[in-house]
Protein backbone atom coordinates (compact mmCIF):
# COMPACT_ATOMS: atom_id res chain seq x y z
CA UNK A 1 0.00 0.00 0.00
CA UNK A 2 1.12 3.53 -0.65
CA UNK A 3 1.94 5.63 2.40
CA UNK A 4 -0.22 8.24 0.80
CA UNK A 5 -3.24 6.17 1.88
CA UNK A 6 -2.55 6.95 5.53
CA UNK A 7 -2.29 10.61 4.71
CA UNK A 8 -5.63 10.53 2.97
CA UNK A 9 -7.15 8.67 5.90
CA UNK A 10 -5.84 11.23 8.37
CA UNK A 11 -7.25 14.04 6.28
CA UNK A 12 -10.69 12.53 5.73
CA UNK A 13 -11.10 10.64 8.99
CA UNK A 14 -13.86 12.72 10.55
CA UNK A 15 -15.87 12.77 7.33
CA UNK A 16 -15.70 9.01 7.02
CA UNK A 17 -16.63 8.52 10.66
CA UNK A 18 -19.64 10.80 10.23
CA UNK A 19 -20.79 8.91 7.16
CA UNK A 20 -20.46 5.57 8.96
CA UNK A 21 -22.51 6.72 11.92
CA UNK A 22 -25.15 8.13 9.58
CA UNK A 23 -25.43 4.79 7.85
CA UNK A 24 -25.54 2.89 11.11
CA UNK A 25 -28.26 5.16 12.51
CA UNK A 26 -31.04 2.88 13.65
CA UNK A 27 -33.75 5.53 13.36
CA UNK A 28 -33.86 5.17 9.59
CA UNK A 29 -34.71 1.52 9.77
CA UNK A 30 -37.19 1.62 12.65
CA UNK A 31 -40.09 2.03 10.21
CA UNK A 32 -39.46 -1.42 8.83
CA UNK A 33 -40.25 -3.18 12.08
CA UNK A 34 -43.87 -3.31 11.05
CA UNK A 35 -42.95 -5.62 8.18
CA UNK A 36 -41.39 -8.14 10.53
CA UNK A 37 -43.42 -11.05 11.87
CA UNK A 38 -41.96 -12.33 15.13
CA UNK A 39 -42.38 -16.06 15.57
CA UNK A 40 -40.78 -18.51 17.94
CA UNK A 41 -40.20 -21.47 15.64
CA UNK A 42 -40.91 -24.92 17.07
CA UNK A 43 -38.55 -27.32 15.28
CA UNK A 44 -40.49 -29.93 13.35
CA UNK A 45 -38.80 -33.12 12.12
CA UNK A 46 -38.18 -33.70 8.45
CA UNK A 47 -35.54 -35.24 6.23
CA UNK A 48 -33.28 -32.37 5.20
CA UNK A 49 -30.54 -32.21 2.60
CA UNK A 50 -28.04 -29.47 1.79
CA UNK A 51 -25.15 -28.91 -0.56
CA UNK A 52 -22.21 -26.66 -1.15
CA UNK A 53 -19.30 -26.50 -3.54
CA UNK A 54 -16.01 -24.72 -3.93
CA UNK A 55 -13.47 -24.11 -6.64
CA UNK A 56 -9.92 -22.82 -6.55
CA UNK A 57 -7.49 -22.35 -9.37
CA UNK A 58 -3.99 -21.36 -10.31
CA UNK A 59 -3.31 -19.31 -13.40
CA UNK A 60 -0.28 -19.84 -15.53
CA UNK A 61 0.55 -17.80 -18.61
CA UNK A 62 -1.13 -20.17 -20.98
CA UNK A 63 -3.28 -22.42 -18.88
CA UNK A 64 -5.37 -22.63 -15.73
CA UNK A 65 -5.41 -25.54 -13.34
CA UNK A 66 -8.51 -25.84 -11.21
CA UNK A 67 -9.72 -28.02 -8.41
CA UNK A 68 -13.39 -28.35 -7.62
CA UNK A 69 -15.25 -29.94 -4.70
CA UNK A 70 -18.95 -30.43 -4.09
CA UNK A 71 -20.81 -32.31 -1.44
CA UNK A 72 -24.43 -32.94 -0.46
CA UNK A 73 -25.46 -34.12 2.99
CA UNK A 74 -28.74 -35.67 4.10
CA UNK A 75 -29.84 -35.98 7.71
CA UNK A 76 -32.41 -38.67 8.44
CA UNK A 77 -31.24 -39.60 11.91
CA UNK A 78 -27.74 -40.12 10.56
CA UNK A 79 -25.77 -38.01 8.17
CA UNK A 80 -25.35 -39.49 4.67
CA UNK A 81 -23.33 -37.80 1.94
CA UNK A 82 -22.66 -37.66 -1.78
CA UNK A 83 -19.44 -35.95 -2.82
CA UNK A 84 -17.38 -35.30 -5.91
CA UNK A 85 -14.06 -33.72 -6.65
CA UNK A 86 -12.10 -32.97 -9.79
CA UNK A 87 -8.76 -31.50 -10.72
CA UNK A 88 -8.37 -30.38 -14.31
CA UNK A 89 -7.01 -27.98 -16.87
CA UNK A 90 -9.33 -25.26 -18.08
CA UNK A 91 -8.97 -25.01 -21.81
CA UNK A 92 -9.01 -22.90 -23.89
CA UNK A 93 -7.82 -19.83 -22.01
CA UNK A 94 -11.07 -17.94 -22.32
CA UNK A 95 -13.82 -16.52 -20.03
CA UNK A 96 -11.98 -17.97 -17.09
CA UNK A 97 -13.70 -16.54 -14.01
CA UNK A 98 -17.20 -17.25 -15.23
CA UNK A 99 -16.46 -20.73 -16.45
CA UNK A 100 -14.85 -21.68 -13.16
CA UNK A 101 -18.01 -20.55 -11.36
CA UNK A 102 -20.09 -22.45 -13.85
CA UNK A 103 -18.05 -25.63 -13.30
CA UNK A 104 -18.56 -25.37 -9.62
CA UNK A 105 -22.30 -24.86 -10.05
CA UNK A 106 -22.58 -27.90 -12.34
CA UNK A 107 -20.81 -30.08 -9.77
CA UNK A 108 -23.02 -28.75 -7.01
CA UNK A 109 -26.25 -29.37 -8.90
CA UNK A 110 -25.16 -32.85 -9.91
CA UNK A 111 -24.32 -33.74 -6.32
CA UNK A 112 -27.67 -32.39 -5.24
CA UNK A 113 -29.40 -34.55 -7.87
CA UNK A 114 -27.84 -37.65 -6.30
CA UNK A 115 -29.82 -37.16 -3.09
CA UNK A 116 -32.77 -34.92 -3.93
CA UNK A 117 -35.27 -37.78 -4.27
CA UNK A 118 -34.64 -38.96 -0.72
CA UNK A 119 -35.33 -35.70 1.12
CA UNK A 120 -38.34 -33.60 2.13
CA UNK A 121 -36.37 -30.40 1.94
CA UNK A 122 -33.20 -29.44 0.11
CA UNK A 123 -31.14 -26.39 1.01
CA UNK A 124 -28.82 -24.65 -1.42
CA UNK A 125 -26.37 -21.91 -0.58
CA UNK A 126 -27.37 -18.74 -2.41
CA UNK A 127 -30.16 -17.67 -4.69
CA UNK A 128 -31.68 -19.64 -7.59
CA UNK A 129 -32.87 -16.41 -9.24
CA UNK A 130 -29.27 -15.24 -9.33
CA UNK A 131 -28.25 -18.64 -10.69
CA UNK A 132 -30.74 -18.23 -13.54
CA UNK A 133 -29.60 -14.72 -14.28
CA UNK A 134 -25.94 -15.62 -14.17
CA UNK A 135 -23.56 -16.43 -17.02
CA UNK A 136 -25.58 -14.59 -19.63
CA UNK A 137 -22.36 -13.49 -21.26
CA UNK A 138 -21.48 -17.08 -22.06
CA UNK A 139 -24.12 -17.26 -24.77
CA UNK A 140 -22.85 -14.20 -26.58
CA UNK A 141 -20.75 -14.17 -29.74
CA UNK A 142 -22.08 -17.46 -31.08
CA UNK A 143 -23.62 -17.35 -34.56
CA UNK A 144 -26.92 -18.97 -35.45
CA UNK A 145 -25.23 -21.86 -37.27
CA UNK A 146 -22.83 -22.40 -34.44
CA UNK A 147 -25.74 -22.52 -31.98
CA UNK A 148 -27.43 -25.15 -34.10
CA UNK A 149 -24.29 -27.24 -34.05
CA UNK A 150 -24.25 -27.07 -30.24
CA UNK A 151 -28.00 -27.70 -29.86
CA UNK A 152 -27.48 -30.97 -31.70
CA UNK A 153 -25.55 -32.18 -28.65
CA UNK A 154 -28.34 -31.21 -26.20
CA UNK A 155 -29.93 -34.69 -26.01
CA UNK A 156 -26.58 -36.11 -25.01
CA UNK A 157 -26.20 -33.45 -22.31
CA UNK A 158 -29.65 -34.32 -21.04
CA UNK A 159 -28.84 -37.99 -20.87
CA UNK A 160 -25.44 -37.56 -19.27
CA UNK A 161 -25.19 -39.38 -15.94
CA UNK A 162 -22.81 -39.01 -13.02
CA UNK A 163 -21.28 -35.90 -11.60
CA UNK A 164 -18.62 -35.10 -14.21
CA UNK A 165 -18.89 -32.25 -16.66
CA UNK A 166 -20.12 -33.92 -19.84
CA UNK A 167 -19.22 -30.98 -22.10
CA UNK A 168 -15.53 -31.67 -21.77
CA UNK A 169 -15.97 -35.03 -23.49
CA UNK A 170 -18.65 -33.82 -25.94
CA UNK A 171 -16.53 -30.87 -27.06
CA UNK A 172 -14.50 -33.21 -29.27
CA UNK A 173 -17.45 -33.29 -31.63
CA UNK A 174 -17.37 -29.55 -32.23
CA UNK A 175 -15.89 -28.24 -35.49
CA UNK A 176 -12.90 -25.86 -35.45
CA UNK A 177 -14.83 -22.82 -36.63
CA UNK A 178 -15.52 -20.60 -33.55
CA UNK A 179 -14.49 -23.46 -31.28
CA UNK A 180 -13.94 -21.39 -28.13
CA UNK A 181 -17.31 -19.71 -28.28
CA UNK A 182 -19.11 -22.95 -29.10
CA UNK A 183 -17.45 -24.80 -26.24
CA UNK A 184 -18.35 -22.12 -23.74
CA UNK A 185 -21.92 -22.14 -25.06
CA UNK A 186 -22.03 -25.91 -24.71
CA UNK A 187 -20.87 -25.66 -21.11
CA UNK A 188 -23.53 -23.03 -20.46
CA UNK A 189 -26.19 -25.35 -21.90
CA UNK A 190 -24.99 -28.12 -19.60
CA UNK A 191 -25.37 -25.74 -16.70
CA UNK A 192 -28.94 -24.87 -17.68
CA UNK A 193 -29.78 -28.53 -18.34
CA UNK A 194 -28.60 -29.51 -14.88
CA UNK A 195 -30.39 -26.62 -13.22
CA UNK A 196 -33.58 -27.56 -15.08
CA UNK A 197 -33.34 -31.15 -13.79
CA UNK A 198 -32.83 -29.92 -10.27
CA UNK A 199 -35.69 -27.43 -10.46
CA UNK A 200 -38.15 -29.87 -11.95
CA UNK A 201 -37.30 -32.68 -9.58
CA UNK A 202 -37.05 -30.40 -6.56
CA UNK A 203 -39.68 -27.78 -7.25
CA UNK A 204 -41.41 -28.38 -3.91
CA UNK A 205 -38.23 -29.20 -1.99
CA UNK A 206 -35.67 -26.56 -2.91
CA UNK A 207 -34.88 -23.71 -0.56
CA UNK A 208 -32.16 -21.15 -1.21
CA UNK A 209 -30.49 -19.56 1.81
CA UNK A 210 -28.15 -16.63 1.31
CA UNK A 211 -25.99 -15.03 3.90
CA UNK A 212 -25.04 -12.01 1.85
CA UNK A 213 -27.94 -11.25 -0.44
CA UNK A 214 -27.73 -7.83 -2.04
CA UNK A 215 -31.43 -7.81 -2.87
CA UNK A 216 -32.67 -4.35 -2.05
CA UNK A 217 -36.34 -3.80 -2.66
CA UNK A 218 -37.13 -1.67 0.37
CA UNK A 219 -35.50 1.35 -1.21
CA UNK A 220 -33.26 2.18 1.72
CA UNK A 221 -30.04 2.08 -0.25
CA UNK A 222 -28.75 -0.89 1.73
CA UNK A 223 -29.54 -4.62 1.28
CA UNK A 224 -32.88 -5.65 2.76
CA UNK A 225 -31.11 -8.19 4.95
CA UNK A 226 -29.17 -5.41 6.64
CA UNK A 227 -32.34 -3.40 7.25
CA UNK A 228 -34.03 -6.23 9.14
CA UNK A 229 -30.85 -7.14 10.91
CA UNK A 230 -30.78 -3.60 12.32
CA UNK A 231 -34.49 -3.06 12.86
CA UNK A 232 -35.32 -6.32 14.65
CA UNK A 233 -33.78 -8.87 16.92
CA UNK A 234 -36.40 -11.56 17.41
CA UNK A 235 -36.82 -14.75 15.44
CA UNK A 236 -39.30 -14.39 12.59
CA UNK A 237 -39.62 -13.40 8.95
CA UNK A 238 -40.37 -10.38 6.81
CA UNK A 239 -43.57 -10.18 4.75
CA UNK A 240 -42.93 -12.52 1.80
CA UNK A 241 -42.59 -11.10 -1.70
CA UNK A 242 -42.69 -12.85 -5.04
CA UNK A 243 -40.40 -12.49 -8.02
CA UNK A 244 -39.93 -13.94 -11.49
CA UNK A 245 -37.15 -14.14 -14.05
CA UNK A 246 -37.89 -12.11 -17.17
CA UNK A 247 -34.92 -12.68 -19.44
CA UNK A 248 -34.89 -15.21 -22.27
CA UNK A 249 -33.03 -18.50 -22.22
CA UNK A 250 -31.59 -20.51 -25.12
CA UNK A 251 -33.23 -23.65 -23.68
CA UNK A 252 -36.13 -24.43 -21.28
CA UNK A 253 -37.18 -20.82 -21.70
CA UNK A 254 -40.84 -21.49 -20.97
CA UNK A 255 -40.13 -23.45 -17.79
CA UNK A 256 -37.71 -20.97 -16.33
CA UNK A 257 -39.90 -18.00 -17.03
CA UNK A 258 -42.97 -19.63 -15.61
CA UNK A 259 -41.34 -20.03 -12.18
CA UNK A 260 -42.59 -17.80 -9.38
CA UNK A 261 -40.20 -17.36 -6.46
CA UNK A 262 -41.24 -16.48 -2.91
CA UNK A 263 -38.64 -14.44 -1.04
CA UNK A 264 -38.39 -13.41 2.58
CA UNK A 265 -35.80 -12.29 5.10
CA UNK A 266 -35.71 -14.75 7.99
CA UNK A 267 -34.20 -15.18 11.42
CA UNK A 268 -34.41 -18.64 12.97
CA UNK A 269 -33.39 -17.79 16.53
CA UNK A 270 -33.61 -14.63 18.65
CA UNK A 271 -30.53 -12.46 18.32
CA UNK A 272 -28.96 -14.50 15.52
CA UNK A 273 -28.25 -13.43 11.94
CA UNK A 274 -30.85 -12.65 9.27
CA UNK A 275 -30.69 -14.66 6.02
CA UNK A 276 -32.51 -14.39 2.72
CA UNK A 277 -34.76 -17.33 1.98
CA UNK A 278 -36.00 -18.13 -1.50
CA UNK A 279 -38.23 -20.97 -2.80
CA UNK A 280 -39.18 -21.61 -6.44
CA UNK A 281 -42.92 -21.63 -5.73
CA UNK A 282 -45.66 -19.45 -4.30
CA UNK A 283 -46.26 -19.96 -0.60
CA UNK A 284 -48.29 -18.05 1.98
CA UNK A 285 -47.29 -17.02 5.49
CA UNK A 286 -48.49 -20.19 7.18
CA UNK A 287 -46.62 -22.36 4.68
CA UNK A 288 -43.56 -20.21 5.22
CA UNK A 289 -43.75 -20.73 9.00
CA UNK A 290 -44.15 -24.45 8.52
CA UNK A 291 -41.11 -24.47 6.24
CA UNK A 292 -39.03 -22.48 8.72
CA UNK A 293 -39.96 -24.86 11.53
CA UNK A 294 -38.70 -27.75 9.47
CA UNK A 295 -35.48 -25.88 8.71
CA UNK A 296 -35.07 -25.09 12.42
CA UNK A 297 -35.04 -28.81 13.13
CA UNK A 298 -31.52 -29.17 11.76
CA UNK A 299 -30.23 -25.71 12.59
CA UNK A 300 -27.53 -24.78 15.04
CA UNK A 301 -26.89 -21.25 16.19
CA UNK A 302 -29.62 -19.97 13.85
CA UNK A 303 -28.14 -21.46 10.67
CA UNK A 304 -28.79 -24.78 8.93
CA UNK A 305 -26.09 -27.10 10.19
CA UNK A 306 -25.82 -29.19 7.03
CA UNK A 307 -25.07 -26.09 4.95
CA UNK A 308 -22.35 -25.12 7.37
CA UNK A 309 -20.93 -28.61 7.43
CA UNK A 310 -20.90 -28.85 3.65
CA UNK A 311 -19.26 -25.46 3.35
CA UNK A 312 -16.55 -26.31 5.86
CA UNK A 313 -15.75 -29.57 4.13
CA UNK A 314 -15.54 -28.42 0.54
CA UNK A 315 -13.58 -25.22 0.92
CA UNK A 316 -10.30 -25.55 -0.96
CA UNK A 317 -7.77 -23.20 0.60
CA UNK A 318 -4.92 -21.61 -1.30
CA UNK A 319 -2.51 -23.73 0.67
CA UNK A 320 -4.30 -26.90 -0.32
CA UNK A 321 -4.28 -25.69 -3.91
CA UNK A 322 -0.52 -25.29 -3.66
CA UNK A 323 -0.21 -28.85 -2.36
CA UNK A 324 -2.29 -30.14 -5.28
CA UNK A 325 -0.11 -28.33 -7.78
CA UNK A 326 2.99 -29.63 -6.03
CA UNK A 327 1.51 -33.10 -6.40
CA UNK A 328 1.19 -32.58 -10.15
CA UNK A 329 4.83 -31.62 -10.43
CA UNK A 330 4.15 -28.85 -12.92
CA UNK A 331 6.84 -26.33 -13.67
CA UNK A 332 5.26 -23.48 -15.54
CA UNK A 333 5.41 -19.73 -15.48
CA UNK A 334 2.66 -17.65 -13.98
CA UNK A 335 4.06 -14.44 -15.42
CA UNK A 336 4.19 -13.00 -11.93
CA UNK A 337 7.72 -14.11 -11.25
CA UNK A 338 9.06 -10.82 -12.60
CA UNK A 339 7.16 -8.97 -9.91
CA UNK A 340 8.93 -10.78 -7.11
Amino acid sequence: MLDLTYEVLARDKSGIQKRVSELLDRSIVKDYRARWNSVCFKPSPSVVGAEDGSINHKRYKNLVIYAVNATAHVYDGDIRSASSADVGVLYPYFQIEERLHLYRAIYEFKCALEVIDSVDLFLVDGSMISDLNAFRRLSQGVSKEQREEVFALLPMLEQAEGVEIASIELSRRLGPDGYREKLVFLEYLEYLTTLEKLLSRGLDKLVGISKLSTRSRLGTGVPDLAVFEEATSQAGYSDPETDVVTRRFPVYDELFRSLVFTISSIRLEDGKDVYMLEVPREIDKSQLIELLERISYTSVDGYPYLLKKAHKEVTITNREMKNLIAGLGIVAKTGREVLK
Binding site: Y75, D78, I79, T298, S299, V300, D301, Y305, K309
Partner: peptide, 11 residues
Amino acid sequence: DVVERILKFEG
Protein backbone atom coordinates in the same frame (compact mmCIF):
# COMPACT_ATOMS: atom_id res chain seq x y z
CA ASP B 1 -25.59 -25.39 23.39
CA VAL B 2 -24.20 -25.25 19.88
CA VAL B 3 -21.95 -28.18 20.71
CA GLU B 4 -24.93 -30.14 22.05
CA ARG B 5 -26.86 -29.52 18.85
CA ILE B 6 -23.98 -30.48 16.59
CA LEU B 7 -23.44 -33.68 18.55
CA LYS B 8 -27.07 -34.52 17.96
CA PHE B 9 -26.43 -34.64 14.22
CA GLU B 10 -22.89 -35.89 14.15
CA GLY B 11 -22.93 -38.36 17.03
